[in-house]
């Protein structure tokens, strides 16, 4: 008996790292899962490694593209007949910089990737969930959704913005058995952090990748990065039927970093 037996979930940006850990946890709990990513190759690798059989499907698409972002919802419904759980996880930065040096291209990329994609996916999922009066929407925000560090203005701004979107949507659908929540992880050494961490470190004025990680750890009570499994456990809880009374919440998984 899984905690998510009979549920169908879609997770943006889930061939690796946080999204992948959530997908694996959902599979273990009995859900049927659609994973998503830009690379068909990484999708095929993930499918093979996860071994989800008929309960797992991959949708190739870029969350920064509206058609792809909405397409994952259609794909899940076509593949598994409905969508119960939408995890809007995809996000990141490419070449972040302090405000004074931020390019329009990078700014637009970050707003599109971290905010527009969440809106597009949420709207499309809600259009399916509202008539059914059932659903769970989970947004991956960040400690930077409440804090803010130098050199990552776009990331901090968009991760704040999705919390406003989440709270507002939660109140719109509060009586329809649809919950909308966000998870706010602390730093996690995911592939994307390893890829973009060195350039982010320069923008943030720290010596390098190791120093970047150390800076986040120093701010936490646990003095270590978080783990993808810690985020996945919360994502399971929020997806469950018993979580019907939890909505509009910014759920921290940050080892005691945020003051509120």
């Amino acid at each position: 008996m899984g905690k998510l037996d009979g549920k169908v979930a879609a997770i943006t940006g889930s061939t690796r790292s946080i999204g992948r850990a959530i997908a694996e946890a959902y599979l273990r709990e009995g859900a049927q899962v659609v994973i998503n990513g830009r690379s068909a190759e990484k999708g095929a690798t993930a499918m093979k490694e996860m071994g989800g059989g008929p309960n797992l499907a991959f949708f190739a698409g870029d969350a920064r593209n509206q058609k792809d972002c909405e397409g994952i919802v259609d794909f899940a419904i076509e593949k598994f007949g409905k969508l119960d759980i939408m995890v809007l996880n995809s996000g990141g930065v490419e070449n972040t910089a302090p405000v004074a040096m931020m390019t329009d291209e990078e700014w637009m990329l970050e707003v599109t990737w971290n905010l527009h994609s969440v809106f597009w996916g949420m709207r499309k999922a809600l259009q399916h969930m509202i008539p059914r009066e059932a659903g769970r929407i989970i947004v991956t925000s960040s400690v930077e959704g409440k804090l803010g560090k130098p050199g990552i203005p776009g990331y901090a701004a968009t991760k704040h913005a999705v919390l406003g979107l989440m709270k507002s949507a939660a109140r719109e659908v509060g009586t329809l058995n649809i919950t909308v929540n966000a998870i706010l992880p602390g730093i996690i050494e995911t592939d994307i952090v390893r890829d973009t961490g060195p350039s982010s470190a320069i923008a943030m004025g720290v010596a390098g990748y190791d120093e970047l990680i150390a800076m986040f750890c120093a701010e936490s009570a646990i003095k270590r990065p978080n783990k993808v499994e810690e985020v996945a456990a919360v994502a399971v809880l929020l997806a469950r039927d018993v979580a019907a009374g939890i909505t509009g919440t910014s759920f921290p998984v940050d080892g005691g970093t945020m003051p509120y």
Partner: peptide, 27 residues
């Protein structure tokens, strides 16, 4: 609803969650 959150916090995966004020308040 409260008990489900307590079970999560008590679990092994709860190791990375501390100093948090988790709302179970329906928004």
């Amino acid at each position: 609803e409260v008990a489900a959150v307590a079970s999560l916090l008590a679990s092994e995966a709860g190791a990375g969650i501390t100093g948090s004020m988790i709302s179970v308040d329906g928004g």
